[in-house]
Design a protein around this nucleic acid. Structure first.
Length: 654
RNA sequence: GAGCCUGUAGCUCAGUGGAUAGAGCACCUGCCUCCUAAGCAGGGGGUCGUGGGUUCAAGUCCCGCCAGGCUCACCA
């Protein structure tokens, strides 16, 4: 399809050169899609450009360009300044079914890093937004022909893990064995840790000395080889497996779990540290200095134009107690991802995961059966609140002389998920959240906080969606066996959740409202799935009636029947033409809602057609066969796009 | 204080400088003897926060202002 439109651009460029003696390159000619089907299948406003260059009326320019032949185009109409293309429909169907040929420049390896949940508590709905965006980005990139590696970074040595370990040791008085036993109890361990972690602020506030426990524990975890360290490792790996299970319920998986502890164990940080010192990117503040950062290694940013206006722009990379901050570790990780570190991890199969997945390990644990990292392009899916830090990491790459790598590393930022105050009020009434400040409740939404326990847990939302879906299925078909109800409910729940998250543009704060998330009607995932199911129903019914469905690969049938198809049917197929453009634009702008909403628009058009144009009841055989062929093409294209791009499956029945 | 983001229908949100500003929810009216109504058709509802500017053309670009959110730690 891309090739088809490329050929149009070239032909238009040549025609304009000949007709007006002015040069407009093929790359400067925009091919768009008209707002209404009557205006054709594709359009260009190049006449405006020509008119401006030659000082003439755009409509006149359009009428002079109009007279030319374009591949698979039956006719071109000049409508005022717009040139509208009407395709040779039977020929165009061939292009649609061929799919998207990858462009040659697309072969480079792309790494997408997403999810990255601190392994100290259950995942909440904010993490769902990250994972769904990340996973959809991966699918979009693959759709466009890229080789993609998906990494879920595990910060197993950070303060967050230390906090939960402190809670286990100091509040509950647990040793390793007790923690392990807790994990075997019926209550999900991630939920247990969620509740325990929410107790940490009170513990730290109770006595200033308690804060020392945090750093002692952090240190012990980084050193390893102690009971405290074993608890830390156990908690982190158990949490990772909980998170993998949660995301797997949505069909979201990863290729590799890079662990922060392995960045330290494999000397990645040491290598990065020397690179930083050698390039003079960081400097040591003597312990006897008056500076409040004395004893630390800092990155000087105060003279940097990018960081103007900050009262104190310098950033600590190594703390005065010798431990590395997140920045240092992330910089080392970024360098490795971009193939600029000159070191590699060892790799082993991750234990206890719900499916086979690789994790990093000390390099001496054997040669890697697979090679990871070294991406030409890296997407870091991280919410907007970390923009400042991401900017510093990027600046670090530049200070190391890695300008090109800094350009190839993209922060895919998106706004947070907050809780709508309407929803919070409901939860308070039901006693599921503690009473909140009236001043906060006057706002439209409140930011979530794992520390305060003010958040909605991902699994609880998925459970609620599954329950809702089960109820709907049982209402419609009470005889359905329980196993089938569960399977179908899971598929519906997944679609509802993904669409609910994807329909927002990335800079929009999602003020979470359970009722909206639980909706299966209107602009929702199940509505889109229903279009797919309905197409399938027609084909199934046709077979039951002994009606022969023309094959989509039968060129002769396509050439004979497509011209008999009504305009409405064709209009729906024509919507698939724009999919590759929508997807590449979505990736370029990092606005994945474009893809989701485009699928919704197609579903909407199909539902309308379904009512307007009965297929099996149509008496005229030519028309009936044409519609059957259309349904068959639609079913295939729609189901494929839905699965490949959004990871939404089509249930057998609804 | 500085930086980033947001402001479009009662509510939640879409909206490539281009064709009559859209969708869902809610509300009202119709449509199940019909390929399953998780659906369809129709209706009411808009100073696109505000004031300037650029342009043949501005919800969209630029500047000011107003309102709200996030960020600016030896936490990540």
């Amino acid at each position: 399809m891309r090739r088809l439109i490329g050929s149009w651009r070239e032909a238009l460029s040549a025609k304009i050169g000949k007709e007006f003696g002015t040069e407009i390159g093929p790359g400067d000619i925009s091919i768009d899609f008209p707002p209404k089907p009557e205006l054709g299948d594709a359009t260009t406003n190049v006449a405006f450009t020509v008119a401006r260059k030659c000082g003439m009326n755009p409509a006149e320019a359009a009428s002079r360009i109009r007279d030319l032949r374009l591949e698979a185009v039956e006719r071109i109409e000049a409508r005022g300044p717009y040139l509208n293309f009407f395709l040779d429909r039977a020929e165009a169907v061939g292009y649609l079914l061929d799919g998207v040929a990858p462009a040659p420049e697309m072969s480079a390896k792309v790494i997408v890093e997403h999810t990255n949940i601190n392994p100290n508590k259950a995942a909440h709905i904010g993490h769902l937004r990250n994972a769904v965006l990340g996973d959809t980005l991966v699918k979009a990139l693959r759709f466009l022909g890229h080789e993609v590696e998906v990494q879920n970074y595990i910060d197993d040595t950070g303060v967050q893990v230390a906090d939960v370990v402190v809670c286990f040791r100091e509040i509950l008085g647990y040793g390793f064995e007790e923690v392990r036993r807790e994990a075997e109890k019926e209550k999900p361990f991630d939920i247990f840790c969620w509740e325990l972690y929410a107790k940490s602020p009170k513990y730290y506030e109770a006595d200033p000395d308690n804060l020392n426990k945090r750093y002692e524990t952090l240190h012990l975890i980084e050193e390893g080889d102690s009971e405290t360290a074993r608890i830390g490792e156990f908690v982190a790996s158990s949490m990772v497996n909980c998170h993998l299970r949660t995301m797997d319920r949505l069909g979201i998986r990863y290729d590799l779990l890079p662990h922060e502890s392995d960045i330290l164990k494999n000397g990645f940080w040491n290598r990065c540290f020397s690179m930083l010192k050698e390039s003079g990117s960081i400097e040591y503040i003597p312990p006897d200095s008056e500076d409040k950062m004395r004893g630390c290694w800092v990155m000087r940013l105060s003279g940097n134009k990018e960081f103007e206006g900050l009262s104190d722009a310098d950033k600590v990379i190594v703390r005065s107690n010798g431990t590395v901050t997140y920045l240092g570790k992330d910089l080392a990780y970024q360098l490795w991802k971009l193939g600029a570190l000159g070191k590699d991890f060892g790799y082993v199969e991750s234990e206890g995961a719900p499916y086979m997945i690789w994790r990093t390990a000390p390099a001496e644990m054997g040669p890697a059966e697979r090679k990871f990292g070294g991406g030409q392009k890296v997407f870091n899916v991280i919410d907007v609140r970390q923009s400042y830090l991401q900017k510093i990491v990027r600046e670090g790459l530049k200070m190391l002389g890695r300008e090109k790598e800094a350009e190839s590393s993209v922060h895919f930022s998106y706004e947070m998920v907050a809780l709508s105050t309407r929803f919070i009020r409901e939860e308070i009434e039901k006693g599921r959240l503690p009473a909140a400040d009236e001043k906060d409740l006057a706002k439209p939404f409140i930011e979530m906080s794992g520390r305060k326990g003010l958040a909605y847990i991902a699994d609880h939302l998925i459970d609620a969606l599954v329950e809702r879906a089960k109820a709907e299925i049982e209402k419609r078909e009470p005889e359905t066996p329980a196993g089938e109800v569960s399977d179908r409910a899971a598929v519906l729940a997944r679609a509802a959740l993904k669409y609910y998250i994807l329909k927002f543009s990335r800079n929009q704060v999602v003020a979470f409202d359970l009722n909206e998330a639980l909706s299966f009607e209107g602009e929702t995932g199940p509505y889109i799935q229903y279009a797919s199911v309905r197409a399938g129903n027609i084909l199934r019914k046709a077979e039951e009636k002994g009606e022969i469905v023309p094959s989509v690969v039968d060129k002769e049938a396509v050439a004979r029947l497509i011209p008999l198809l009504d305009n409405d049917g064709w209009g729906i197929l024509s919507l698939f033409l724009r999919m590759p453009f929508v997807v590449s634009r979505a990736v370029e702008l990092r606005e994945l809602n474009l893809i989701a909403r485009n699928m919704y628009e197609i579903a909407q058009a199909f539902h309308n057609y379904y009512h307007k144009a009965p297929v099996l009841q149509e008496e005229d055989e030519g028309k009936r066969k044409a519609r059957l062929l259309f349904i068959s093409i639609f079913a295939r294209l729609f189901e494929d796009h839905l699965g490949d791009l959004l990871g939404i499956e089509t249930p057998r029945r609804m």
